[in-house]
């Protein structure tokens, strides 16, 4: 019995040489270790072995079994490694070829700039409210202290619509709508599109966008000093902490006092260049303390309430921020322009 086992072992080991093929290995496994294999048969015939030899034979069978199994495993592992190495040697990509392109769109530069601006105001506690593009004379002009036929109306050439309506010339109509609906304290911005009768050109567009903002509270709470604080903070947030801000007296029918706001030139930093027409300053927005007539128009008592308001053009801000000099780029939608954002 012992000899028979040794013979099985020797034969099998001989067949499991280093160059044994996968098929040979499998044949050996089936012939020796398989269900109907030689070792299995011997284990099954163990009853016929004298009882005193059984432990030793059993041990030997297990020993041979383990030896063959580990030999097979080693051979298979070696072969698998060889196959993998062959494959690795063959499988070579030109990693410099382009990948499968899953498109990713770009948001419009005006969206990006507007969102940044809105975000800054929201961070300062302003609430963004959407208002309408089509409006009436009252909300776009009269309530904002533009009397009929007043020359100030000509600063903003209006598109008129049937039914006595018009396309808003500024987002300031939002001020009126919100104040009519709510009571102070208010801190609101109204972003949106506006329309003026200008041909599309380097500097103008018949449709453009603005952010109107205003803050109203009891007399003495929201002053011109707060207007300066909020707008300076906003402009430094948008254009960088080193930006200098200048308030110049001006005129808007709906504010009194009125101020235009300049920032130190984004290109030259104030030294003087083409962008700032060598003045060192560029105009960025209009602002002021809400005119008492505007407060009256929405039913607030100007002796009780006061506040500030401002309007900032998104296109103009975007031109300055992005360092481009042609308004048409925003509305032509040339992909070669848009894909840079």
């Amino acid at each position: 019995m012992r000899e028979q086992l040794e013979a099985i072992r020797n034969r099998a080991m001989a067949q499991l040489g280093d160059d044994a093929s996968a098929e040979q290995i499998e044949n050996v496994r089936v012939a020796v270790l398989g269900r109907g294999g030689e070792l299995t048969a011997i284990m099954r015939g163990m009853r016929e072995v004298p009882a005193e030899e059984r432990p030793a034979i059993g041990q030997l069978v297990n020993e041979i079994k383990r030896e063959l199994e580990s030999r097979i495993e080693a051979l298979q592992e070696r072969q698998q490694r060889a196959r993998m190495e062959r494959a690795l040697a063959e499988q070579r990509l030109d990693v410099t070829l382009p990948g499968t392109r899953i498109g990713r769109g770009r948001s419009h530069p005006l969206t990006q700039v507007a969102e940044e601006m809105i975000g800054l105001f929201e961070a300062m506690g302003f609430e963004a409210v959407a208002t309408q593009d089509i409006d009436d004379d009252f909300h776009n002009f009269s309530a904002l202290n533009f009397p009929p036929d007043h020359p100030a109306r000509e600063m903003q050439d209006t598109f008129f619509l049937p039914g006595g309506l018009l396309l808003r010339t500024h987002t300031s109509n939002g001020q009126i709508h919100v104040m009519q609906r709510r009571q102070p304290p208010l801190a609101v911005i109204c972003p949106g599109n506006c329309y003026r009768r200008d041909e599309l050109s380097v500097r103008a567009s018949p449709m453009f966008s603005q952010i109107e903002g205003f803050m109203v509270d009891r007399t003495g709470i929201v002053t011109m000093a707060h207007l300066k604080g909020v707008l300076s903070e906003f402009l430094r947030g948008l254009f960088g902490a080193a930006t200098r801000v200048r308030f110049r007296a001006s005129f808007f029918p709906f504010t009194e006092p009125s101020a235009e706001v300049d920032i130190s030139c984004v290109l030259c930093g104030g030294g003087g260049c083409r962008v700032c027409k060598h003045s060192g300053w560029v105009e960025i927005l209009g602002s002021g303390m809400i005119h008492p007539n505007v407060l009256r128009a929405v039913g607030y008592d100007p002796a009780e309430y006061q506040g500030f308001a401002f309007g900032v053009g998104i296109e103009r801000t975007a031109l300055l921020k992005l360092g481009v000099d042609d308004m048409r780029l925003f509305f032509e939608n040339d992909l070669r322009f848009l894909e840079q954002f």
């Binding site: 899953i102 498109g103 990713r104 769109g105 770009r106 948001s107 419009h108 005006l110 969206t111 969102e115 929201e122 506690g125 302003f126 609430e127 963004a128 409210v129 959407a130 593009d133 801190a187 599109n193 329309y195 599309l200 567009s205 018949p206 449709m207 925003f330 509305f331 939608n333 992909l335 848009l338 894909e339």
Partner: peptide, 29 residues
Amino acid sequence: ITRDPARAFVARTRDTMLGCGLTEIRTIA
């Protein structure tokens, strides 16, 4: 501050469109 749900909805929509490979454009009305 109150956030206008309509604005949030626009932002969400824009994100999906961008993720689907569409670029945002602006045309005149």
